[in-house]
Design a protein around this nucleic acid. Sequence first.
DNA 1: TGCATTTGACCATA
DNA 2: TATGGTCAAATGCA
Length: 316
Amino acid sequence: MEAAAGGGGWDLNSLVAVLTQGEAQLRQLCECMAARSPAEQEKQLVLRAQSCFQTAICMAKAADSDLFQAAAAAAAAAAAASPRSNSGCSANSERALKEQQRKEMCKKRKTLRKWTSRVRVLGSSNGHDDGFNWRKYGKKDILGAKYPRAYFRCTFRNAAGCPAMKQVQRSDDDPFAIDVTYRGDHTCLQSKRPQPGAGAPPALSSEPAEQKQQLLHSLQTSLKVETEGFSSDDQNHNCFSFSSTPASGGVSPPFVSPTTTPESSSFWLSSDFGDLFSAVTPANDYSSYTDFILDSAGFAAASLFDASAFFHDSEI
DNA sequence: TGCATTTGACCATA
DNA sequence: TATGGTCAAATGCA
């Protein structure tokens, strides 16, 4: 796919190629370092640099996707519609651009992957967090539904062109259940895990390891995810997975034991955890701290949460 | 002051 | 034409 990134004489494929080359060289450096048993700090630096490269590659690839193309096409269309200077017709071209983007959005909405999850939050009804940063952009009363539907899009939609969106609606029949409909996969590779000592609550960071194990055990027994719209051969993806590298795919952590049926599974967040997290975190920010707890207890870094790894190929 | 949320209006679709 | 989905100005909050 040839995606001109403006009139600068380069395209995104070239950018991806350069970044990939950089990452490969970094990997070589890593191998060289391994031969002379480097210090832990050096290893961490290389790993972080590698992670940066991988993120940049993914972002470049994301920018190469439809949204970017749509924006470029819209800009081109607007420019073609107003051949005179931008200064004279900026309002018109801006309107044309928005009109074009809206049409592209409507087209894209039909093609975006879509899947639904039902999440139960016992003892707390203040929302749902799935590890991503979402920005609310609308709320709508739905005919026949007791509760309004909230609309969210990925916080990094503008920054990284991430097309992911979700709709959240409280279930009519079960006030503790919320139905979450996702559209599109994240391309932004968000990292939400709070850094120890940089925002992590002292109460948790100073907990004894035994207590953390108990928390994990409690989490294991009280977490249940309910999803809909999965094909029967996708059971492997019906659970949360935390991976240390974005491309490594889902590795099911030992604490998740989803009670899946071919078509549905469900999450339950117990009131214990709701209370615990609400006591130490901003509202709706539980997952950051599950990540933190897991990491503290010795699990692999849970810095990335790839929805496509969890809810795979489940178009409705 | 910057960012997130709210909310009324607008638009596309069935 | 009713309804769902999105936009963007207004508002609130840290």
